[in-house]
Design a protein around this nucleic acid. Structure first.
Length: 171
DNA sequence: AAGAAGATTCGCT
DNA sequence: GCGAATCTTCTTA
């Protein structure tokens, strides 16, 4: 759920990737730095980073204070504020609004100002209760990384068209 | 102080 | 399907 000056946008999380402690593919692997310090906050805080110099991606920190771990939000099924997301994304296609971590960030107007936000409190960005029970959740290898590629830490709702990449419409 | 790599996306062939 | 765009952060000299 995202509240901004332009209005509210929200979506249902349909795809995530987990980055656990000791995971060589995770941004927290090298230890706390200026960039990844919010990954070491108590679980439920936002970690926002710039990917490839272009895209803002969002994580939810997932461990106890001082431990680096998080969950990358990879895709949303748009719910509220669809016209606003369409304007931000420059497309009318619902499928293209938040299918992929960079697109998700753009649709929700995520930026570094939201880094470290407590996602369990009232604020500009937070996690709300599910509007609908999830369908069948499937696991797969993570996308776009070069290390720890064997780990099945990507999770998505099977058959949901708003999921990016493999698994969107297949089984 | 400079160079290389990166949890991606978009447009063109 | 493939390659460019783009810039922050970390590593090395």
């Amino acid at each position: 759920m995202r509240e901004s000056d332009e209005g509210r946008t929200s979506g249902r999380i349909v795809e995530t990737e987990a980055y656990v402690p000791g995971d060589a593919a995770g941004h927290a692997y090298v230890g706390p730095t200026d960039r990844n310090r919010t990954l070491f906050l108590r679980r439920g805080h936002a970690y926002v980073y710039l990917s490839y110099g272009i895209h803002f991606c969002v994580n939810v920190s997932g461990a106890t204070p001082g431990v680096g771990a998080g969950t990358l939000l990879r895709a949303l099924e748009p719910l509220e504020g669809v016209p606003l997301m369409q304007a931000r994304r420059g497309t009318l296609r619902l499928i293209d609004l938040a299918r992929g971590p960079g697109r998700l960030g753009q649709a929700m107007a995520i930026d570094r100002a939201l880094d470290g936000t407590d996602l369990c409190a009232c604020g500009p960005l937070w996690l709300a209760d599910a509007v609908r029970p999830p369908g069948k959740v499937k696991a797969s290898v993570r996308i776009g990384i070069s290390k720890e590629t064997a780990r099945l830490l990507r999770f998505y709702e099977q058959g949901n068209p708003h999921v990016s990449g493999p698994g969107a419409l297949r089984r």
